[in-house]
Structures are given as structure tokens and as C-alpha cells.
Design a protein around this nucleic acid. Sequence first.
DNA 1: ACGAGAACCTGTTTGC
DNA 2: TGCAAACAGGTTCTCG
Length: 307
Amino acid sequence: MAGRIVSHIVWSLHDGYDNLRRSPLLESQVMPELPEVETVCRGLEPELTGRMLTGVTLRRSNLRYPLPDGFVAKLTSRRVIAVRRRAKFILVQLDNEITLVIHLGMSGRLVIHTESPPPPPGPHDHVDVVTDTGVTIRYNDVRRFGFMDLISDADMSQHPMFAKLGPEPLGNGFNAEMLCETLAGRRTSIKAALLDQHVVAGLGNIYVCESLFRASISPKRNAYTIAGRRAERLVTAIRAVLKDAIAAGGSSLRDYVQASGELGYFQHKFQAYDQEGKPCVMPGCKGTVRRISQSGRSTFYCPGHQR
DNA sequence: ACGAGAACCTGTTTGC
DNA sequence: TGCAAACAGGTTCTCG
């Protein structure tokens, strides 16, 4: 049995790692947006919380950015207090008032190797972190849009990476009223506005398309026209889309733990994203999903019901 | 200040 | 068939 791929975490069991790396499942993975990062955090949590980091191996000194000075020394022999998520950032809180911040970028993956020693690293395996239980957490990133950083707890809130982030879409701070205020006066499209992490934190191209589809709002609509019932619909849709995706990721985690059945995550089908030319699945709508380009990025939507 | 587009990166897909 | 261009997309930077 080869290891199982769960969201952006890949569990490698005692064999099959080379096969796993060539698995077509890898190619069908969706990009890491909020639900994927949340799933990764839930997978990491039991492996890391309370554990001491006994070793760190760097195979290159830079990912997207240069790794901070003393990266290895500041992690080694530290204990993990908690694993959390903010927007698309994975936050590993350490016992020295420093947090390891991990961003998966577009192609970043974390591989949990339970066997010790772990398999030989591949060409894009950039960082290994080993815990006192002998588990290796390996960071792999083909395109190197991801990065890691160390931020002291005191600097966290003022850090440019976090200071201006919008609210968590699943949190209490995200509602129709605040969304209207944020979008007021914005001349750009609602599609572009929702991709802006300062408006709401954690959405990417895929879930913006899905949310607008579910809310029956055209991606071309001017952002400032989102108000009233339409804003309520959008907030509801964003929440529902994210919760569904997280639930799909969670069921994959359970599948892994029970070592049974197919991976629910990869069966997760999108209603709009990557569905160009397919009939709209919205009940009562006879439209066809179209693909357009907005600010250089693909948008999928149904002109039949998205207005 | 704001918005559009480029750049970063590499493996895969598409088109000539 | 083979090679080059296009494409994927999160974030930051530049330019108008």
C-alpha cells in the first residue's frame, strides 16, 4: 500500500514513496487555499503539538525568500506549543516565543514520514524537520512560491504579513455589513476584490469562483455594487463553500487514519472551477459554464444565473 | 491611493 | 515528431 495523499500532506508509509511521487493524484491536487491549509494544520497538529524538534535539515538556503538567520538553531530543541492557521499561513508556535510561519505558495506540500530514517530526499524536498518521536516532516515545493519565516510573538501583530490581513471568512468578524464597508468605493470587479487578502483572508482563485457561483453573482460585477441581500448571499456562500471543502479534507484525514476507502478529498468536485463548457449544475439553470480571463487569471462562471 | 499587469518558478499541456 | 509558447496561481513589486 502506497502512502496516502491528503490535501497537501502526504503520508508515506513503509513503502511506495517513489510510486507515490509519480502518482497522478499529485497532479490533480488543487492549490492550497484556506481549506487545504486548514486540513494540513489538522494533519500536522497531532504530530507536532507537545513534541520537541530534534533536527532540522535545509537543502537550500532560500525558498521564495532567503530563510532567516539562525533558522536551524532557533528551531532545534524547541518544543511545539500549538499548530494554528491564519489565512493561508501555517503557524507553528514554539516554546521560545517564536512562531514558525509556513506558506505553501502554489505547490508547497508537507510530507509526514513515520519511518526512521525517512526515504532519500527528492529534488524539490527543501526542508526536513524531525521530532522526538522520530517522525520527519518534509517540505516539498516544486515552484518555490512558498516560504518559511520565524517571527517573534511580540512582532506578530505588526508584521506586514499579518497586520493588514482581512478577517477570517469563517470567523465572527466576517459579515455582510463589514464586507459592504470594505467594498464601498472599490472600482474593481468582485472577483478581483475577493482575491485581495486585505478584503477577506484565505480565498484563492478556486474558492472565489465557487463562492460567486453559489451566490449567483457575476464575477464581472463591480465590487462596490455588492450590498444588501446580495452581500448576505455572498457571505453565506463563501462560508458554505469553505466549510464543504474543509469537511471533504477532514473526511480524507479519517480515511487515512482508518486506512480504508478512497480519498474523499480528491473526489471533491467543483461546480464552476475548471468546468468550462459543462452544463450549469444550479437547479433550474440551463446555462453553460464559461471561462474568461480577469486580471490575467482564469475565472469560471455561469452567465445563466450569475448576475 | 488604487488598480492592472508583470515577475517569480517549474512541470505539464497546447499549438504550430 | 519536436520544440516553443502558454498555462497553472499566491504574493509582491512596478507602473500609470
